[in-house]
Computed example of a mutant assay.
Amino acid sequence: MSGPGREDRRLAWERRAEIPLLVAATVFLAAYAVPIVWPDLSPATDRTAELVIVGVWAVFGADYLVRLALAGERWRFVRTHLLDLALLVLPFLRPLRLLRLVFVLQVLHRRAQFTFRGRVVTYTVGAVAFVVLIASLAVLDAERRNPEANIQNMGDALWWALTTITTVGYGDHAPTTGEGRLAAALLMVAGIALLGVVTGSLASWFVERLRGVEQAEERTQAALAEILTEIRFLNARLDALERRPSPGD
């Protein structure tokens, strides 16, 4: 099959797989979050959550392999999807486990590419909520094992994530471990990007509104000009009729 035909099949696969992958990402996030938010659960629950994570990870890996097989130019696909490959391989190294959650964002981004048509604000609000939740889980997972850490529960983690992503940064809570600081760095970058999206979206909305007002004014002025032209024409006809001599003169 030709390259363009294979690419069409790959895009069709991605559209069909977006909902199942979104469901899998949600299950993945829940399995990751439960042992972190409730650390006193039984070892059996922890093992079940880990098995769910591995199972969902296998689904992600299968999706990547299918997309690679359907790609028109496979080496080009690998080069242009290095993040997908890295997020599949690197998080199994203990210091990089938090990158598992970045893959959830990658899945959500793929979903947004097909469904996002002019709904910038809705998408941005959802993205902010997910980023805050994911960053909170990641930093709590990293910090809880450090006795000197000041982020010890989900409330602390959420407060830290909110103050960080909004660039307020009170400093009352801060990560102390390498993993926690990596999560903070990723959150800072995401916060800047999301704030840029919000600012750009609002600016675009205002420009569109102003352009709409200007166009409405232009249409109104054009209509008034037509009315004035008609009035002048009618006045000219009336003047001509008044100046015309009557039959009895």
Rank of each mutant, 00 (worst) to 15 (best):
P4V: 00
G5L: 10
G5A: 12
L11G: 02
L11T: 11
W13P: 01
E14L: 04
E14P: 05
R16N: 15
E18R: 09
L22V: 05
V23T: 07
A25D: 04
T26C: 02
F28D: 02
F28R: 11
Y32W: 09
V34A: 03
V34G: 05
V34Y: 08
P35H: 03
V37L: 14
S42K: 10
S42D: 05
S42W: 08
T45F: 04
T45C: 07
T45A: 15
D46I: 13
R47P: 00
V52W: 00
V54I: 14
V54L: 13
G55Y: 04
G55I: 08
V59L: 09
A62F: 07
A62H: 07
V66W: 10
R67K: 15
L68F: 10
A71L: 00
G72K: 13
G72C: 08
E73H: 13
W75Q: 07
R79L: 10
R79P: 02
L82E: 13
D84N: 07
L87R: 04
L88D: 00
L90R: 01
P91Q: 10
L93G: 13
L96Y: 13
L101V: 05
V102K: 13
A112F: 11
Q113C: 11
F116D: 15
Y123F: 11
Y123C: 04
T124R: 02
V125W: 03
V131E: 05
A138T: 03
A138L: 04
V139R: 04
R144H: 08
E148P: 06
A149G: 06
I151V: 01
Q152I: 13
Q152R: 10
Q152Y: 06
N153G: 12
N153D: 14
M154D: 00
G155I: 01
G155E: 01
D156P: 06
W159T: 10
L162E: 01
T163D: 15
T166A: 06
T167N: 12
T167Q: 11
T167Y: 14
T167E: 14
V168E: 11
G169F: 03
Y170H: 15
H173W: 06
T176P: 06
G178P: 00
E179N: 03
E179P: 00
A185T: 15
L187M: 01
V189H: 02
V189T: 12
I192R: 15
A193G: 08
L195W: 12
G200W: 00
L202W: 01
A203F: 13
S204E: 10
S204A: 15
F206V: 15
V207G: 12
V207H: 11
L210T: 05
L210W: 03
R211G: 12
E214R: 09
Q215E: 14
A216Y: 12
E218P: 01
A223L: 15
L224V: 10
A225S: 12
A225Y: 04
A225G: 08
L228A: 12
E230G: 07
F233W: 00
N235D: 12
R237P: 01
L238P: 03
D239I: 13
A240Y: 10
A240W: 09
A240T: 11
A240M: 09
L241N: 07
E242F: 15
R243I: 07
R244D: 09
P247Y: 01
G248V: 13
